[in-house]
Simulated assay, not measured.
Amino acid sequence: MEQLAFNIRPCTPLDLDKLVVLIEKHAEFEKAVFTTEGKLASLEAALFGEQPPLNCIVA
Rank of each mutant, 00 (worst) to 15 (best):
L14W: 11
D17M: 05
C56T: 04
F48L: 05
L40C: 01
K18C: 13
E30D: 15
A32I: 08
F6Q: 03
K39E: 06
L4E: 13
F6N: 03
A45N: 14
E28D: 10
K31D: 12
A5R: 15
P52G: 01
F48R: 03
C11Y: 01
L19A: 11
A32L: 14
L22D: 04
I8Q: 11
K39A: 06
F34N: 06
A41H: 07
P52F: 01
L54A: 05
A45G: 07
P53E: 00
D17Q: 08
E28H: 09
N7M: 14
L16A: 00
F34M: 04
G49D: 02
V58G: 04
G38I: 02
L4G: 09
G49I: 05
G38A: 03
S42M: 08
I57W: 15
F29C: 11
P13Q: 06
I23Q: 10
Q3E: 13
A59W: 13
V21P: 00
K18W: 11
F34C: 04
G38E: 02
F29G: 12
Q3K: 15
P13F: 01
P13G: 02
D17W: 01
P10K: 14
K31S: 12
A59C: 13
F29R: 11
K31I: 07
V33I: 08
P53L: 00
K18S: 14
K25C: 09
F48G: 02
F34H: 06
D17K: 10
L16R: 01
I8R: 15
H26N: 11
I8N: 10
E30C: 10
F29W: 11
E28Q: 12
G38F: 01
E44F: 04
P13A: 01
F34K: 04
L4V: 09
E24Y: 01
P52S: 00
Q51R: 10
V20M: 00
